[in-house]
């Protein structure tokens, strides 16, 4: 692990039976950087995200995380309480389906405030104010703070999930197809929001997407995966405009222009 990287992975291997999900995968992420992992189904991109975030263990290889004090830890050797604490504070995880990460029976404000309460916040007034502030940041009307997410549209739910994730100012956020399943106009708004927030807050992001346009818009660097192997990695515009690997060339040429 070099002196500056926030997250580093070396020699990750994981097979599901005979199916290769990760084959000698290396990855690095620097503070404030957005790294996109692109590939089609079966590429291993979601598996890589899960292994990097400690949610799934590799069969071999290591993932290191450097915290704000510069202390380096092996993500998969951490105790369960430490990893859970990390996920609640310095890290965030935005799921493709926002319902996986929201309490549908709890108000929007309660959803956003939960991480604060989990960290020991005990002042109702300030928790609520902070929640309202974050709802504004993700363009949800303040008047909805007491509403149940059941009444929200898909795009609003996703934005609520993002507010809930960012409220503790994480340094690193994992995103799994954050715009998947949303209408195109809704996607545009969400992408713009993610782009703005990530840049303004200097958050490092590992973003899994099958949509090259999303990678181009949000990511500094991109990793292209095919059947568990990283076939190409580099500057986003370079990989997408001057693809070297045959599979990357295939992916890029397959994208339909509107």
């Amino acid at each position: 692990m070099t002196d500056e990287t926030l997250l580093s992975a070396r020699n990750l291997n994981l097979h599901f039976g005979a199916v290769p999900a990760l084959v000698n995968v290396n990855a690095d992420l620097w503070p404030g950087e957005v790294l996109a992992i692109v590939g089609e189904s079966g590429s291993g991109k979601t598996t890589l995200l899960n292994v990097l975030s400690g949610r799934m263990a590799p069969q071999s290889g290591t993932v290191w995380y450097r915290d704000s004090e510069g202390v380096q830890s092996d993500v998969h050797a951490m105790s369960a309480p430490s990893l859970r604490a990390l996920h609640r504070s310095d890290w965030g995880f935005v799921h493709q389906n926002p319902r996986d990460n929201l309490r549908m029976g709890v108000s929007a404000g309660g959803n956003v405030g939960e991480r604060l309460m989990a960290q020991g916040s005990r002042h109702y007034g300030s928790i609520r104010e902070e929640a309202i502030r974050w709802l504004a940041q993700v363009e949800i009307d303040e008047a909805r703070v007491d509403d149940l997410p059941r009444t929200f549209s898909g795009g609003m739910l996703q934005r609520l999930q993002i507010a809930r994730t960012l409220v503790t100012h994480p340094r690193l956020v994992f995103m799994d197809e954050p715009t998947g399943g949303l209408d195109v106009s809704v996607q545009a708004r969400l992408l713009d929001l993610i782009r703005t927030l990530v840049r303004r807050l200097g958050i490092a992001v590992v973003l899994v997407t099958h949509d090259l346009a999303v990678a181009r818009l949000l990511a500094h660097r991109v990793m292209v995966m095919q059947r568990g192997v990283v076939v190409e990695t580099g500057l986003t515009d370079q990989v997408l405009d001057d693809p070297q690997h045959p599979y990357t060339q295939l992916l890029v040429s397959s994208v339909l222009a509107a």
Binding site: G234, L235, D237, Q238, D241, D242, Q244
Partner: peptide, 9 residues
């Protein structure tokens, strides 16, 4: 030009 910018490798 694109090579100078790093857009082409």
């Amino acid at each position: 030009l694109r090579s100078l910018y790093g857009n082409y490798r």
